[in-house]
């Protein structure tokens, strides 16, 4: 069996980038964007399958504004040749349902056996697009995958996924969607020749009006009312006494506060 794998990627601010609430309607985000951490793991997981099954066909898809192109360039640099950019800037403010609808409109045509995405994006931390895509495609999904083994005939996969305090190993046929947790694969640093190839690549865009979206709207189910500042913590209280009296000092504080009985 020749396996077709689609990887979903997104470009997000680096986790060290400065993010501040400028107003209720606007965030100020430092211009340091990267391919989302878990999405890179998804790309690497697809490449790992390709190593064992060289005739596997790999695609990367990203839905969003121009910035998405950089996530696709990263996927090319890492080793995926076929990439598609879907939609435009209007997707940056869309709800996860709409993003999923856009991705699925293309996935229905590609008909992959396996879809791999990150368990959540590094910007909105929503963790919803993957399961939504699976539901729209009417295929099973497994979230938080930490291992993936294919059998030689390629008609079955064994996926290990993180559950609270446990790893569960599930068996599934295809088609299937899995979302990648840390541990599924270790993203490699791309070689220079691939980076050059990625920089020069002409990336195909499919505009929204060419996708079957069945009347779904960008914010048809949810709309953002406002951004708010995160709650702030009061100034830290430092223990003043020398060791080991400072331990009693600390326990006293916690008992006074009613945190320790």
């Amino acid at each position: 069996m020749k396996l077709k794998i689609a990887v979903l990627v997104k470009q997000v601010p680096d986790h060290e980038a400065m993010v501040q609430v400028k107003s209720e309607q606007e965030l100020e985000i430092e211009d340091r964007y990267v391919c989302s951490f878990f999405d890179e793991i998804a790309v690497e997981a697809a490449l790992n399958i390709e190593k064992n099954h060289p005739d596997a066909e790999l695609f990367a898809l990203s839905a969003g504004g121009k910035r998405s192109i950089d996530a696709l360039r990263r996927a090319i640099a890492m080793g995926i040749d076929q990439v598609v950019h879907l939609g435009d800037e209007s997707l940056e403010a869309s709800d996860s349902n709409y993003t999923a609808q856009v991705l699925v409109a293309r996935l229905r045509i590609l008909q992959p056996d396996l879809v791999i995405c990150g368990k959540q994006a590094g910007d909105d931390d929503y963790a919803a697009v993957g399961p939504m895509v699976a539901e729209l495609l009417d295929i099973p999904h497994i979230s938080g995958a930490v291992s993936l083994d294919t059998n030689p005939d390629l008609n079955m996969v064994n996926v290990g996924c993180e559950r609270e305090g446990e790893i569960w190993y599930l068996e599934s046929g295809f088609p299937l969607l899995i979302s990648a947790e840390k541990g599924l694969a270790e993203p490699h640093v791309p070689v220079v020749t691939r980076v050059m190839k990625a920089m020069k690549a002409n990336i195909q865009n499919i505009p929204l009006n060419e996708l079957e979206l069945h009347g779904n709207k960008p914010q048809g189910r949810i709309h953002r009312i406002r951004y708010v500042e995160p709650p702030s913590r009061p100034e830290v209280i430092m223990m003043q006494k020398p060791f080991p009296e400072n331990i009693s000092e600390l326990v006293n504080y916690l008992q006074e506060k009613g945190i320790l009985s």
């Binding site: 601010p13 986790h15 993010v19 501040q20 609430v21 965030l27 985000i29 590094g122 910007d123 909105d124 931390d125 048809g220 189910r221 949810i222 709309h223 953002r224 009312i225 406002r226 951004y227 708010v228 500042e229 995160p230």
Partner: peptide
């Protein structure tokens, strides 16, 4: 953004 900001969403 990992708690660097919060959003308030209305569910319609």
């Amino acid at each position: 953004y990992g708690g660097r900001a919060y959003e308030e969403l209305a569910l319609i």
